[in-house]
Design a binder for these strands. Structure first.
Lengths: 249, 249
DNA sequence: TCGGCGTCTCCCGTTCAACGGGAATGCGGC
DNA sequence: GCCGCATTCCCGTTGAACGGGAGACGCCGA
């Protein structure tokens, strides 16, 4: 789990420190951070102190450390992620009222699908996806949409790597995937049955900005549920989102 | 506008670079960043390059620079801001359906109100608040709630500073504010008429986690609209949010 | 065609702040 | 008391950050 300190600029170290924070490890001691980020103890304490002084990290009364609001603020204001999310949110809510399941917004980031937003209906079941979480491109409907419209070199690079199966039915054969992706481009929709969990199906469509596919909008349905209503709701939402992206605000 | 390079660690410089990105300046050249962050040109280019390599910044085809998805990801996963927002979002949506205006979630950050979330009904008018935006504590209903329940030393520090008036009716007299804040603590609600814009009124209530006030939930109404429905809707939402925060997930 | 402007890259000698090993202190818990 | 862990302090070393400056490149208007 410990990162090998392959390179070592100040910035790499800061990133390694930030990477030690996850949903289940949101509060840690400076020493823990140091161990997980592969930093010598005294160095880790110094860097953590500096980050706390800058407001990027916060400190509890018991000296334990957590991500700071200021980091959140700096990362969001002026980010394209926020712009996209703001455009999408109202339409995602509308999807949510029709399809009472999970609705998600994902973008391509470092050869994976990064989830920007998730709305979950109270009645819907569990769902792996988390905001700021990732999934492999080949194993989620959102990922398939993003991969299908990605530059060819990226697509080939991903397909050349060994593809992990998240569930028994995950498609990991490059040839079959290539045919799947062609279908996604043709139909404008990706349907992934049991790719992540056997019991559920993902349905995803692309969102375009100035012609380019910039994100994927998806819903997760129970395995046996029909797809047509979902596809219609997603297409309608995309129309609205794309109109919002085009207009100044 | 240019920041004085008061201190100058690597981290300060990075923060200064990130600070140059705002909603209206989301894409800039490396030279622009350097000027705005008060960095020598060659230094600015080097730092920007490093940040791009680390994925914290992204680069367009035309070499202009924007905030990276990876920064967004690192800032959010494991952040308490996300946890709070996730707990609040469904209840904010419910408020939104009753009070068809703006609904906002804010926290205290560095003696200002930092807005974590905003939902806006299509029919509602313009609104200053932006996600990842700030407002002074004394001049918004959310700010008054946060200030009223803040530690006494912070409250006194804020009241001792010269208080800016955002609108003609903004209350800037420390004595009057102190009395206002006592009323907020007593009533459990803050009402700010024309503090930001003459035409609107803010109504805000506190959100508690383990007894501590951690955030404020607010709506912005047209000046003449009645407050009672808003207060009821906000109180109901807070109940739900606090229950969510208490339960594991 | 030319000149000017802004951006970016490259080079290189200087320097000083980051670095981290190690020892010491403090703090529970068994 | 004793151990394990987190944190703090000290200090001599060193190499990487620093930034001034020169020059290349591209764009635009004259």
């Amino acid at each position: 789990m410990a990162n090998s300190p392959s390179s070592d600029s100040m910035i790499d170290r800061i990133v390694r420190v930030l990477e030690t924070f996850t949903a289940d490890r949101s509060v840690q001691s400076a020493s823990q951070i140091g161990r997980r980020a592969a930093l010598p103890s005294s160095t880790a304490h110094r860097i953590v102190d500096e980050l706390v002084d800058a407001g990027l990290l916060g400190r509890d009364e018991d000296r334990r450390v957590h991500l700071g609001m200021r980091l959140w603020e700096l990362a969001l204001r002026g980010s394209t992620a926020l712009r996209l999310r703001q455009a999408a949110l109202p339409y995602m809510e509308r999807v949510q009222t029709h399809i009472r399941q999970h609705t998600q917004l994902a973008v391509l980031e470092q050869d994976e699908a990064l989830f920007l937003e998730r709305l979950s209906h109270p009645d819907a079941g569990a769902n792996i996806t988390r905001i700021a979480g990732r999934l492999p491109l080949h194993a989620s409907s959102s990922g398939l949409v993003l991969l299908a419209h990605a530059p060819a070199d990226l697509r080939e690079r991903v397909l050349a790597q060994p593809l992990r199966a998240l569930a028994p039915e995950t498609v990991t054969d490059p040839g079959r995937l290539r045919r799947l992706l062609a279908g996604v481009r043709r139909d404008g929709v990706a349907i992934a049955q049991g790719s992540i969990e056997s019991v559920s199906t993902g349905v995803a469509v692309p969102i375009r900005d100035a012609g380019e596919v910039v994100a994927a909008l998806s819903v997760v349905l129970p395995r046996q549920a029909p797809h047509t209503a979902a596809i219609i709701a997603l297409r309608e939402a995309v129309t609205g989102i794309e109109a919002t992206l085009r207009s100044p605000r």
